[in-house]
Design a protein around this nucleic acid. Structure first.
Lengths: 152, 152
DNA sequence: TTATGTGCAAACTCTTTGCATTACC
DNA sequence: GGTAATGCAAAGAGTTTGCACATAA
């Protein structure tokens, strides 16, 4: 999948703001930048920390309000990671699912076409019109498996 | 899958209690009964309501402590339903996943062998030792799809 | 009798809301 | 200038913890 530039997402944000008759704000752009630069999925608290580095004083309330707005506008994807709660990532257009290491917390993204088709079939068989899904696979990554072998 | 009786699960509970050198308690059995009789996945608050009907005064703290214990002992399965938070169901032994209607909240359980195998393959390809997974499919059920057709 | 289990209330975490002030158009 | 956006603090929801008392072994 081709990497899009930050300006692409800033443009989408400005369009969404205009469409809804809202006003531009520095904070929304700053939060979008943080999400763009993030290597992984961030919690609201983590986003708050990052945005403060860039934008001085930013309230956590603004982070929550902005994330809710981004979610509605599909600028971000929300993922629930078990006990770790909601996390956010920039919606770069490519749907994917997650493998999560229960030892070190590493998250690996993957996409599997066969899986997507299978889900469609399952939903159809149950009479459901499928809109979205979330699949998390929990396990031990290669490194952590190796470590636990050494221990035992 | 054959339906097991309540006594089967009570026995498992008593074994777990003995194994850990703990003491029997009425509240734990009452909570187990509630889970056994539940038609669907219950939130801690719902479990609390049900247990109070049967057992007079039961603290919400006891419900949380007991659910944590049941979870460790694999007597219950925990499911995260998006914004609705953690829910619990008795572990009846048969793993399954969930289809969730975003209109009416209906939850349909399903099991698909092909899906299980596919997950194993995906995890293996990524070097993960798969321990568990959760897959939720979100969509509109047959009834709700029909209603929204009428509206439009 | 002694350790575990419980209920209650307080504490804590995460998230949302009200309101005065600031920033955008 | 008018309206939306923000920061702060307070309020809520959900969950956990401390402690005195109750209860099982």
């Amino acid at each position: 999948m081709e990497q899009k530039e930050l300006s692409h997402y800033l443009k989408k944000l400005r369009e969404a703001v205009r469409r809804r008759g809202l006003k531009h704000s520095q904070q929304r752009e700053a939060i979008l930048k943080v999400l763009y630069n993030a290597a992984c999925h961030l919690s609201p608290e983590q986003i708050h920390q990052e945005v403060k580095k860039e934008c001085g004083s930013v309230g956590i309330a603004t982070v929550y309000r902005t994330l809710a707005f981004f979610e509605q506008e599909k600028l971000v994807c929300t993922i629930f990671f078990g006990n770790e709660g909601k996390k956010y990532e920039l919606n770069r257009g490519g749907h994917h699912d997650h493998l999560i290491c229960i030892e070190c917390g590493k998250i690996v993204e993957f996409f599997d076409d066969e899986l997507e088709k299978l889900q469609e079939r399952i939903a159809k068989d149950a009479g459901f019109e499928l809109l979205s899904h979330q699949m998390n696979l929990y396990g031990r990554c290669r490194e952590c498996s190796a470590v636990s072998c050494q221990r035992s």
